[in-house]
Design a protein around this nucleic acid. Sequence first.
DNA 1: CAAATTTGTCATAGT
DNA 2: CCACTATGACAAATT
Length: 605
Amino acid sequence: MGWESHLTAASADIDLGAGREIFDYSHRQKEQDVDKELADGVEQEDTWPGEGAEVLARNLLVDGETGESFPAQVPGGEDQTALSLEECLRLLEATCPFGENAEFPADISSLTEAVPSESEPPGLQNNLLSPLLTGTESPFDLEQQWQDLMSIMEMQAMEVNTSSEILYNAPPGDPLSTNYSLAPNTPINQNVSLHQASLGGCSQDFSLFSPEVESLPVASSSTLLPLVPSNSTTLNSTFSSTNLAGLFFPPQLNGTANDTAGPELPDPLGGLLDEAMLDEISLMDLAIEEGFNSVQASQLEEEFDSDSGLSLDSSHSPSSLSSSEGSSSSSSSSSSSSSSSSASSSASSSFSEEGAVGYSSDSETLDLEEAEGAVGYQPEYSKFCRMSYQDPSQLSCLPYLEHVGHNHTYNMAPSALDSADLPPPSSLKKGSKEKQADFLDKQMSRDEHRARAMKIPFTNDKIINLPVEEFNELLSKYQLSEAQLSLIRDIRRRGKNKMAAQNCRKRKLDTILNLERDVEDLQRDKARLLREKVEFLRSLRQMKQKVQSLYQEVFGRLRDENGRPYSPSQYALQYAGDGSVLLIPRTLADQQARRQERKPKDRRK
DNA sequence: CAAATTTGTCATAGT
DNA sequence: CCACTATGACAAATT
């Protein structure tokens, strides 16, 4: 009922003062609709993606950096069948308590998988499985390895940072990549100090290990070589479950057998590092790109600087999160999706509070609110200030002004006033008062002018902000014509809508700002994670090299019954979970490696 | 004066 | 249903 009358009233109102609007309306949704919308859409889309592309490019670069650690593939070796395979086996079984530990496969598989390229050098199975993989009881997947390494790395980080800065300040020529590809055929002299072992890229960093290496106890020359964890405890603990045998294969210790065994110092670690890590990295990147991996992100988040915007975000709109969002557990992952929703919801909730205040109270409160917004939020909120100021009804002085104005204009004819109001009637030079009136006129909104024209006996402010009851009361107090009543209703409607629009825009802006901040935060997080990844890669590399050199050191010093060194192509060292190291025939190791090559894949999928 | 921004309105949908 | 609020779209008003 009332509504219909409103509608009719609206038309009446238009007749009174806004004929324009009707006219415009005709072509409003035709031309403008199409043109402007299209333009807007295009513009916006251009802007955002641009930024994204930039970021992406940056990240890619970083990734590229990571990628540098790709080991150069060294084709290589050959497996040489040990002559006395049977003997070896027997021996092994006899000595090795865990002989055919079922656990192997896991290890091998992980290693193999991690280092597909390296582990499959032509003809040579580098993955010698440690028969004593007792340490690893649970299947060892990449993730686990990764985590282990991470934790290890952390421990070593200090060590490394302090003791071997050299490594960190890796030599020019991209040591990262070079280090992995060990020159296969470099002869290694026992006498030659290990640091100088010409293991290709390895050599660069050798100096680092020298201290440790030199202090290494020389192992006795027995077939089975139980190595007691020396000072390299970290290594042992770190790689206890890792099979070292196939990894470091000093191709030609003492120049023995340098032919058959192609050059290959396949190192599981390297593979791990390179392939697996890269895998992870790419995965992470993917995850990040898509919306951030909640688990990793949050983990890392907690570990590292918590200055991320996420925290800010939560603080910013806590109520909304708790109330509307509910589950905020998946902070980051949901942040992208939730940020839009949460942002909007948070914004709406927070604003609803403000809005409620603003609406129910007068302009003064509103002013305060606006000011608060400007201060509390982003600089851009200054806009809001302006917005609010421009709303005449919100000028605290207005009520008073309005009264004055009303008094002045009451005598004038509505129609004349309405039209005359818009163009400044400055022609009436009547002194300062007149000018003041002009000024006031300018400050008045269209509806106020109309109200004046219709001789509405109360302020627009009241019309708009009074609660329904009071509003109706007010109306009932006066004898108002239909035109006046309709005008009043329109004024109320428009006024409310005006405020609603302002709030809406405010909210919208706020949402955008929140999203922008979220984006920044996420970008920052991503960059940080990438940085960390690189750091971890470096640490891993160092570890790998250390282990490698140790392997060579140990292997190179082993002597058989005749006092001769073992051929790296025929024997390999295996690291057991309990920290011991075994010398086993290559063939055996290869077999084991093969056996377990399949399992992992199946298991993985 | 034109282009870019702000604001006010309207129509609608939703509360 | 009423009275409002929220929001997209348009156009007038401002910058």
